[in-house]
Structures are given as structure tokens and as C-alpha cells.
Design a binder for these strands. Structure first.
Lengths: 195, 195
DNA sequence: CAGCTGACAGATATTGAAATCTGTCAGCTG
DNA sequence: CAGCTGACAGATTTCAATATCTGTCAGCTG
């Protein structure tokens, strides 16, 4: 790849890393490949990321943050909490399904990265559950929902729907009738939440 | 291992296969190992199982059937459906957790086998969901539960609790507070089921 | 002189030849 | 003669030599 005149930034390295991961897959993507894609020596990459592990961690976080930001809107809106809860969960499930369907190889690659970076994933889940908690709390405030512990309930709703958003279940997202199954489950959960 | 005077049966081969899998793990367990453990030539094993794949399938089914049978009792009892539903799900989750905790390596081995034998697993899930459906139907009959489609609802309850019984989530079964999370989720689901 | 390069040591991955395994079957054995 | 054996061909796995990669750093460059 042609050397660039632009400054070498962490962001540019992360972009190149994602591209290299897309091309080569998680097993064969090397720091040397990333440097080559940027037209620099691999030593320069190490100036921005201490280790290959740190680079992979950062690219994983970047990927997860994108999902988080897309949902933050729904979580912060000021309207019917029940509808927002439905929209939020559906948004999460559909975002994941779309990514898995659009580029299965890249999705599988990030599945591997997620497995390598449990702590980054854990922090991501904390973020997501915090968003969901805020919706449940809003529902309790309007009297739409009843629960002694909104945080625990939000976690329960999140786990209950995990087969529709956890990448480990991605192979099952193609079966027919999955939309009906999802709706049945969300209906059941919402009934359990209601006052 | 000393040659045995007993007749060589499919069941004896399956027992030996499980032992070999326990000792060597899924990657290194060979048909020759199984034959050696039984004191016969590997040709004899092929008299009972057409291929190594068929042998692994059979041993996987045997393993899954044991769980199924343990739960069939709870599903068939004649008492309060709500309590039975709670007991059944808890029984399923605890059986899996116990196996994972007692012999993590063997559990991981069967995780690999399950991944290799999706169809066997699918049939197992059909069985389990049928059991759960019979409990939900009993609840609808007594008026304890309300649902337009007991089978779909049973499936929803099964999927909702999958993070507590699906082996792919086994790494999370050690975290503290998991019992409370399980109880919170089952309470939520039961509330949704009630008339 | 801030940022980059490229040679280097140790760690990791690739490769291809040798060893082992799978699945078959003609013939042995009780 | 029903059931088992063991030699065999082709497929797969192992292993050790070879190549590549990671992470460092002294020195170059703009």
C-alpha cells in the first residue's frame, strides 16, 4: 500500500487493523500486515499500541462501542417505557443479526476477538445493561412496570433475550420462525414486567 | 487392557468410548484407542458402528438422553404446574451446572461433541421442549397459566433460560450471584405466564 | 528532537515428510 | 458360519526444521 502523508494516528491504525482482519481473518492478521497496509514500519505501530494484544483489544472496543451508541438514543428518549423497551431489545437483536448476515466472516472474526477480550466485552455488557436499567426505571416511575430491583430485572431481561443477541447463538439466527419466537418471548417478558 | 470374555455389545463400546474420551479428549480419542481399551481389534468396533462419526453421535445421544430421563419425572408428575415448571427449569440448569463443575474436561469434551452433532442436539431439544410444553399445558388446564400457544410459550421459556443451561454459557456459571439472577428471571417468566 | 526505521532475539507459525488413523475385506477361528 | 482379525490404501495427524512474527531499541531523518 502506498505510504501516506497523513499523520499516523491511533484511529488510522484501528481502521487499517479492521481492514486487515477483514481480509486475513483473526488467525493470520499480523502487526506487520497492518503496518504494510499503512505504508509504515511495524515499529511505528508499536509507538501507538504497546502490544498486539492491546491493538486487538482497542479494535474490539471500537466495534462494540458502535452498537452501544446506536442504542443509546432509544434508551434516552422520553416516551412510553414499554414501547422503548421493546424497541431497544429489538434494535439490539436486529443490529447483531444484520452484522452477522451482511458480513459473516467479519462477524465471526469479531466473535473470536470477543472471546479473546472478555474484559472489554464485560464492560460493554455493563454499558448495555445500564441503558436497559434506565428504561426499566422509567417504566417503574410511570407505573407501567413493577419490580423491587430495576437493575436485577434489566439484567434478567437482557439474559432472557441473549439467544437473540449473543454472537454465540448466531448460527441459529437463520432458522425460520425466529421473528415469531422473539415476539413471543418479548411479550412474555413485558407481561411479567407490568404492574 | 485385558481382553474380555464378555460379548462385544454396542453398549460396551459406548462405555469404553466415553472412558477414552475422558482420558484423551475429543481431538485425540481414536477408534483404535477404543478397541485397545476393549481388548479387540478396531475392525470389531466397525461391526457395531459404521463410522467413527456414527460412534461419536451415539455416545453424544447417550449422554443427552441421561439428562432427558432425569427430567421426565418432573414433567410427568401430577401437581401444581407452577411449582413443577420452576422445579423442571431449576433441575435442568442444576444438572448442567453440576456436570460442568464435577468434571470440567469431560463437560468440555461433550461440548465439542455437541458442536459436531447438531442434529442429535436438535432432537434432544425437541424432547426437552415437549416436556416443558406438557407442563405449560397442565398450567393452562388448571387455569394457573394463560397463553394462546403453549408450545411457543414453552419454547420461549426454554430460550429465555438458555444462558443458565446452554453449555456455550458454561464459563459464566461460576460468577457470584448467579442463583439470584436465575431466581429473578424465573420469577419474571412465571409472572408473565400467570392468568 | 519527535517520530520513524530496520536489524535483532526470542516466540510463534508454517510446511512437508513420516507416522498414525480410518474404513474395508479376505480369510481365520471357535 | 457368525464374529473376529489384521493387512492394506487413502486420509489425517504429528513432528521437527524452517520461515515469519512480536516486541525492543540504537540510530536515522526531516
Amino acid at each position: 500500500m502506498a505510504p501516506s502523508t497523513e499523520t499516523l494516528t491511533a484511529e488510522r491504525i484501528l481502521e487499517a487493523t479492521e481492514e486487515v482482519l477483514r481480509r486475513h481473518g483473526p488467525a493470520k492478521a499480523t502487526v506487520v500486515d497492518v503496518a504494510r497496509a499503512l505504508g509504515v514500519s511495524h515499529g511505528s505501530v508499536y509507538r501507538h499500541f504497546r502490544t498486539k494484544t492491546a491493538l486487538r483489544e482497542a479494535v474490539t472496543q471500537r466495534w462494540l462501542d458502535r452498537t452501544c451508541q446506536a442504542l443509546a438514543g432509544t434508551a434516552a428518549e422520553d416516551r412510553d417505557p414499554e414501547a422503548r423497551l421493546r424497541d431497544w431489545i429489538r434494535g439490539l437483536a436486529e443490529a447483531k443479526r444484520r452484522k452477522a448476515a451482511d458480513d459473516p466472516e467479519l462477524f465471526a472474526t469479531y466473535g473470536v476477538l470477543a472471546g479473546e477480550n472478555r474484559e472489554v466485552v464485560a464492560a460493554h455488557l455493563v454499558d448495555l445493561i445500564a441503558q436497559l436499567t434506565s428504561i426499566v426505571e422509567a417504566g417503574v416511575a410511570t407505573g407501567a412496570f413493577t419490580t423491587p430491583d430495576p437493575e436485577a430485572t434489566a439484567r434478567a431481561v437482557f439474559e432472557a433475550t441473549s439467544s437473540f443477541h449473543d454472537p454465540r447463538h448466531a448460527t441459529e439466527w437463520q432458522r425460520p420462525g425466529i421473528d415469531e419466537e422473539f415476539t413471543t418471548l418479548v411479550d412474555l417478558l413485558v407481561r411479567g414486567l407490568r404492574a
